[in-house]
Design a protein around this nucleic acid. Sequence first.
DNA 1: GTGTATACTATAGAGTCTTAGGTATCAGCG
DNA 2: CGCTGATACCTAAGACTCTATAGTATACAC
Lengths: 116, 116
Amino acid sequence: MTDQQLRLLKGTLDVLILKTLSWGPAHGYAVSRWLRECSDNELRIEEGALYPALRRLEERGWIESEWRTAESGREARVYALTRAGTKALLSEVSAWRRYMRVFTRVLETRPGESLA
Amino acid sequence: MTDQQLRLLKGTLDVLILKTLSWGPAHGYAVSRWLRECSDNELRIEEGALYPALRRLEERGWIESEWRTAESGREARVYALTRAGTKALLSEVSAWRRYMRVFTRVLETRPGESLA
DNA sequence: GTGTATACTATAGAGTCTTAGGTATCAGCG
DNA sequence: CGCTGATACCTAAGACTCTATAGTATACAC
């Protein structure tokens, strides 16, 4: 019941989507739902952020989409990672780790360790 | 010689500044320099981001400023953390840790662990 | 047939960054 | 003395990504 939801940190959504799609093709709504579940309800992906992000990633050639009709008869645009997207995911993840490392270092540095 | 500089992640600058000022009062330029050094040259704080951020933090009452003349004769606006700022720093840092934890969890989850 | 979940689209607005310009002081150097 | 580089600050345009909100439409349960 952790319903205190985190705001998305600007710029992080793209990697999260790529990561989700690395499990296999999915449509937008499913990506959003998976991210919410995977984060224990802490991350809420607004649709106004999700769909533009998907289009953005497609423009970059990292994902590609196709309209499909589910067995239920519903239509949905299914996204899949491209080869370029797979590569991008790897480098994005490592960039994130690097940023978090630097960020954490600054937050943990004690005075005198580096300050003049 | 790690000159590959990281872009600032939008929203992270405020905490970084608060943290820097928790070592004691400093002027803007010094804050920027300290962050660069503390991050081993990986973080470059653009002035166009720095000064607006300082004003923003002051408007929120987290820091306060005063014009001072250094022994060199140069003038500089020196910023100091307020009591509210000290509290804000603590809660911001823990919010960041929380975000990083969630973010990392998503990036490390393997398929089947949570996906339907 | 009403509501809930699914599935996508679009727009207005806010907030934070990058880029790029500007001012001014001070120290060192030729 | 003028030049350069480091210090110190300010501002504006523009891009980008998010939130908030509203609208469309189908499927299914009650």
